[in-house]
Structures are given as structure tokens and as C-alpha cells.
């Protein structure tokens, strides 16, 4: 490679990066507070949401004795800082409202985000994680998640697309559960009939792609539901790949977001939650 071309390449990349970050910040998704996640790499510092701002504390009396908390896994991410918080907290809140109407479940009506390396995560046997294409867990998070899953916790994965993001997620989950394979979950699995009968796996597009045209992102053309089962055949992790279920909750009220996507997203999530709570 010639030096001039190399310098140009680096310059272009740096410009693109700065523009992207500025855009994201300007969009108001991030607050400019830097906080360390994880304990293994002190130098690894990234900005995240102030948790005290967005996460309900369980000292709140209304959270006492609630059966179900829609809990987001807070994990360390790579270039997309705080990718765990995508669609947060609107998606969570909208989904919880609908969940409360559809299922006779004593669920806490607010969002709940817990770090994977926080022992309190074991208080919440259901976890939702998304954008795992950019997940880079610390060792403490890997251990926390592994113990969580082996103790009986359940993890729902959503909103990651294409080969590259799959490869990243696969390598991350291999760190957590190296001994358990990822397998396809066939449509005749009980999880698709727990409350609603799901007859096909729908590719749920993000709000940006929901207006028509393509529903896929990157090279994630075909939606898939995969899983990781423990030694007893119990489902520990359900992986919704090449689909964005979270966006369908978040924009369920939008007249521009097709209702059938939201319907599917809500139905399959209700099934997953009820299944996770009973199997």
C-alpha cells in the first residue's frame, strides 16, 4: 500500500468516525457522561446512561413482591457505546403496557436494567439483550452471565443482523457457554404455542425499514430463531437473529409502523416470557 493512500484511508476513517459519533450525540441518544463498565480493564472507559436516571430502584415500594421485571442486560459494547440501551426505555415501557393487558402477569410497569456483573441480576430470571453484534463482555460479565444461565436464568437476544454481527455474538456467547451448541428452534417447539400460535418466523424490520421496501439489514436476509439448551434440554437462551423485535414494541403506537409486525413481536415475546417462566 502506498503511503499517500494509507494516510487518505486513515483520514477518511477518522472523519467518518467523528461524524458518526457527533451525529449520534446530536440525536440525543447519549448523555455525555463517561463511566467505566466492567472490572477487568480499567482503561476501558465508555460513556453510558446514568443508571440512576433510567433504572428503577427496587427499594421503590411499588416494586415490592412483583413477579416479573422486564430486565435489560447491561453489557460492555464495542464501537457502539451502550448498544445495550438501544430503544431504551421506550420500547420496554410500551411492551410492558401491552403485556399487562394481554397476560395475567404481575409485572413491574417500568424498565429495569441490570449489569451482568452485578449479583442482583440473579434476582431477575428473565433478561433481554439486543444489538449483540457489538457486544464485548468483560470477564466479569461473562462469569456473571454464565452463572446466571446455569442457575436457571433465561436470556432473550434480539436485534442483530447479518454474518458479521452473528460471528461477534457467537464468539461472545461461546465465552459464556462454550460447551453448549447453538441450535435451530423448529416451529413445532412449544415456545411457539405457549400463549399464541406462531406459525411462521417473521422478519421484523426496524422503524427505518418498516415503511416499505426491504426488511433486512446488512446481509441478514432470513430471520431465524435459535437457542441454547442445557444438559436437561431446558432452553437457556433464545436468539432472534436478523429481526428487530424491540423496534416493533417501541413503535407500536406509530401510524407509520405496520401493525402486523408489532403484533408478531408482541406475540412471540409474550410466548417467550411465559415459556421462560414455566420451563
Amino acid at each position: 500500500m502506498r503511503p499517500r493512500l494509507f494516510v487518505r484511508g486513515v483520514g477518511l476513517a477518522a472523519t467518518f468516525t467523528v461524524l458518526s459519533l457527533t451525529g449520534l450525540w446530536a440525536a440525543g441518544e447519549l448523555k455525555p457522561i463517561r463511566r467505566e463498565i466492567g472490572t477487568t480493564n480499567a482503561a476501558q472507559v465508555q460513556p453510558i446512561f446514568r443508571r440512576e436516571d433510567v433504572r428503577p430502584t427496587l427499594k421503590n415500594p411499588s416494586a415490592n413482591a412483583r413477579e416479573f421485571f422486564f430486565t435489560r442486560a447491561v453489557y460492555n459494547s464495542g464501537y457502539r457505546w451502550s448498544s445495550w440501551a438501544t430503544d431504551y426505555p421506550k420500547a420496554d415501557r410500551q411492551f410492558l403496557v401491552i403485556l399487562d393487558r394481554l397476560v395475567d402477569l404481575d409485572s413491574y410497569e417500568r424498565e429495569n436494567a441490570v449489569r451482568l456483573d452485578d449479583p442482583k441480576v440473579r434476582r431477575f430470571p428473565f433478561l433481554y439483550a439486543l444489538e449483540v453484534g457489538d457486544m464485548y463482555m468483560t470477564e466479569a460479565e461473562v462469569k456473571g452471565l454464565r452463572d446466571y444461565l446455569l442457575a436457571g436464568g433465561f436470556l432473550m437476544i434480539d436485534d442483530f443482523w447479518g454474518t458479521w454481527e452473528w460471528a461477534n455474538f457467537e464468539s461472545e456467547i461461546r465465552r459464556v457457554l462454550p460447551e453448549y451448541p447453538i441450535v435451530d428452534i423448529p416451529l413445532d417447539h412449544p415456545i411457539f404455542n405457549t400463549v399464541y400460535n406462531i406459525e411462521e418466523i417473521v422478519q421484523v424490520p426496524s422503524i427505518g425499514n418498516a415503511q416499505g421496501g426491504r426488511t433486512w439489514e446488512r446481509d441478514g436476509y432470513e430471520p431465524q430463531v435459535k437457542g441454547i439448551f442445557d444438559d436437561s434440554g431446558q432452553l437457556m437462551v433464545i436468539i432472534n437473529w436478523n429481526t428487530d423485535i424491540g423496534d416493533a414494541w417501541e413503535w407500536a403506537e406509530s401510524p407509520y409502523y405496520p401493525l402486523h409486525y408489532s403484533t408478531y413481536a408482541i406475540e412471540i415475546t409474550v410466548n417467550i416470557i411465559v415459556y421462560a417462566m414455566s420451563h
Binding site: 416479573f68 395475567d104 430470571p125 436457571g152 416470557i273 417462566m277 414455566s278
Partner: peptide, 17 residues
Amino acid sequence: EGEPRWEVKFLRRAIDE
């Protein structure tokens, strides 16, 4: 059980074997 509850899952698992 009158509602989805974690007891169901963990009780079933406890006596599964």
C-alpha cells in the same frame, strides 16, 4: 397456578429428575 410465576419454572425443574 393463577398466573405465570417463576415458582412454576423452578419447581418443575427441581423435581424434573
